[in-house]
């Protein structure tokens, strides 16, 4: 199997996730799309690890997973708070950092 197809697949998945982030306004879905992008990156890293026959790519996948876990824990807590305070999950509504 040519390694390039993994890269292409991962790139497409990344783009899909990115488009999702742009299309959706629901904070949870936004978050899921970010996870999608992270996984696309993971795929690239694993494929690269195989290409170079080195551990670095796999190690980075590991770290991405760790960071994603931390991110989800904090991010979901924020989303829960957001919902309780604003009554909505629309990311366009809380624009406290505007201007």
């Amino acid at each position: 199997m040519e390694i390039g197809y993994y890269f292409i697949l991962s790139g497409l998945m990344f783009c899909i996730g990115l488009v999702g982030v742009l299309l959706r306004r629901n904070a949870i879905v936004l978050f899921m799309c970010v996870e999608l992008m992270l996984n696309a990156v993971n795929l690239t890293l694993a494929a690269a690890a195989r290409m170079w026959a080195g551990p670095d790519g796999q190690v980075f996948v590991f770290f991405v997973i760790v960071v994603a876990a931390a991110e989800v824990v904090v991010g979901l807590a924020i989303i829960v708070n957001l919902y309780f305070r604003r009554g909505t999950l629309d990311v366009d509504v809380p624009q406290l950092l505007r201007w």
């Binding site: 040519e2 390694i3 390039g4 890269f7 292409i8 497409l12 990344f14 290409m51």
Partner: peptide, 15 residues
């Protein structure tokens, strides 16, 4: 992405 990877990474050598 397609433009970048199709070719050098999808050759026989990349198996």
């Amino acid at each position: 992405v397609l433009f970048a990877f199709v070719g050098p990474y999808t050759s026989e050598a990349s198996v």
